[in-house]
Design a protein around this nucleic acid. Structure first.
Length: 491
RNA sequence: CGGGAGGUAGUUCAGCCCGGUAGAAUACUUGGUUUGGGACCAAGGGGUCGCAGGUUCGAAUCCUGUCCUCCCGACCA
């Protein structure tokens, strides 16, 4: 990487950190690599959770909860899985503290050593499949469609707010099926759910695809993914859905009797989305004035700021605003009336822009006289004076307009940043100067993929699902290829 | 784990090179005036300068060690 690109990346990181912190989403905590999600950020997460949870239930899933701790031995049952996760786990070795006999503090009681260490889950496949073994006997027990909302811990070397924290919140779906076909369909269905959520609610366009063998989840036969493009031209994996084949069923001996009374291993999927998506939201839509949140997920969709001198004016404004709030709520709009006397209007304007509230209404005595209100939209920063008559409907339709505008803007940016490259020089130049996805031929071998990563830091983000077949030559080796794949530098 | 930067008031940082009473902005408290884009005036509270040693009459400042944080890389959702 050139010096210039390195410093640009650092600037972008700084920009991103500032947005997250000043936008009141989260902050660093006292614990290495962990963050505190603040109430505003958590409200955003709750909206995301609620939306996804409904989508899961609409597709037949139910929620359950499995333990935080996983016996170490469970990890040795699936070889590929342990290979993928063993290096980055927090391990519980003791269960008691004691006063330090040498003075002051508290130390781990050496007598309280656990017989078998417990792993703080980095993902729950093992504990869940150990449980499924007891739950599945017959084809009548299938399919088993379960989701869990939980926290997991991965001891990553380097962390970034939301994008890669030591502890993060997520949902993980774990399903069991009688046939390969059914499991594959489930994995594809959930990828569709994710794509719909990210595009329609987060207003972030994604590319649906499958991972190459190198990038596949540890223990999966196929990993489906959605890939998004950030404003700095780097890619971000926004969700994955795995077809696990019979790997975990075999590792944990989960068999069922089919209709012919023959024992078969079940077929599995798992799929997950995390608080990382909040980072994606920030990186895709925000600008130098702060966050820009999509209306469908914003904790507050409309904020109303009164401007007044004296109690009398305030009273008149309150009266009018209460009516508007009622109408907005009837339309299902999340609205906040900020009549806090301690902050002045200008301060509030800046504050809500920083927090990314999609629509702001400013209403003062002057407006009341003329029966109007100032409407400001966050995405374009456009201000317009609008009649108070029908203002709720106006705001509501403006929210929909903003939602669409955000998606279209992000999509236009994404489209501009998918470029084809037909030879190595072009490929490298695009990566260094433009970034984004680069559509290029690859000979299909893991060695070539590794070599490209080694040379450029770019990885194959995905092989798009609707990929057109096209004969060509691999950009690195010149060997024949049947289709283009998407490369990018990624988070 | 490698490379870089840094740890001083709640926060952001100056002071360090060249040792001599602990600073600014902002935030906070009180009072007043303000209120259409982060107001102003006045008064006030708040820091064992990351930690431990060393040099010195004297250390935020120099030396040694150590811990932690951020950024870049490797790893990853």
């Amino acid at each position: 990487m050139s010096k210039e690109i390195t410093s640009r990346a650092a600037d972008y990181s700084q920009w991103y950190n500032d947005l997250v912190i000043k936008g009141s989403l989260a902050d660093y905590s006292a614990v290495r690599g962990c963050m505190v999600i603040k109430p505003y950020g958590f409200a955003l997460w709750e909206n995301m959770q609620a939306t996804l949870d409904k989508m899961f239930k609409d597709t037949g899933h139910v929620n359950a909860y499995f333990p935080l701790f996983i016996p170490k031995s469970f990890f040795s049952k699936e070889a590929a899985h342990v290979e993928g996760f063993a290096k980055e786990c927090a391990v519980v070795t003791h269960y008691r503290l004691m006063n330090d006999p040498n003075g002051g503090g508290v130390v781990v009681d050496p007598d309280a050593k656990l017989e078998e260490e417990l792993i703080v889950r980095p993902t729950s496949e093992t504990i869940i499949w150990n449980t499924y073994k007891d739950w599945i006997q017959s084809h009548r027990d299938l399919p088993l469609l379960i989701n869990q909302w939980a926290n997991v811990v991965r001891w990553e070397m380097r962390t970034r707010l939301f994008l890669r924290t030591t502890e993060f919140l997520w949902q993980e779906g774990h399903t069991a099926h009688a046939t390969r076909q059914e499991a594959v369909e489930e994995a594809e269905r959930m990828l569709g759910v994710y794509a719909t959520f990210v595009e329609e609610f987060m207003a972030v366009p994604v590319i649906r695809g499958v991972k190459t063998a190198n990038e596949r989840f540890a223990g999966a036969e196929e990993t489906y993914c959605i890939e998004a493009m950030m404003q700095d031209g780097k890619a971000l994996q926004a969700g994955t859905s795995h077809f696990l084949g019979q790997n975990f069923a075999k590792a944990f001996d989960v068999k069922f009797s089919n209709k012919e009374n023959q024992l078969e291993y079940v077929w599995a999927t798992s799929w997950g989305m995390t608080t990382r998506l909040i980072g994606a939201l920030v990186m895709v839509h925000s600008d130098d004035d702060g966050l820009v949140l999509p209306p469908r997920l914003a904790p507050f969709q409309v904020v109303i700021v009164p401007i007044y001198k004296g109690e009398e004016q305030k009273k008149l404004i309150d009266e009018k605003v209460n009516g508007i709030i009622k109408e907005l709520k009837a339309l299902g709009v999340r609205v906040k009336y900020d009549d806090n006397e301690n902050a002045r209007p200008g301060w509030k304007f800046a504050e809500y822009e920083m927090k990314g509230v999609p629509v702001r209404l400013a209403i003062g005595a002057r407006d009341l006289e003329q029966n109007v209100v100032e409407v400001a939209r966050r995405d374009t920063k456009e201000k317009r004076v609008v009649s108070l008559d029908g203002i709720a409907q106006y705001a509501d339709s403006l929210l929909k307009e903003i939602q669409d505008a955000l998606f279209n803007k992000a999509k236009a940016y994404r489209e501009e940043h998918i470029t084809t490259a037909d030879n190595w020089d072009e490929f490298v130049k695009l990566l260094d100067e433009k970034g984004g996805f680069i559509s290029a031929h690859w000979d299909g071998s893991a060695e070539t993929e590794d070599a490209i990563k080694e040379k450029t830091k770019a990885t194959i983000r995905c092989i798009p699902l609707d990929n057109a077949k096209e004969d060509g030559k691999c950009i690195l080796t010149g060997k024949p290829s049947t289709q283009r794949v998407l490369f990018a530098r990624a988070y």
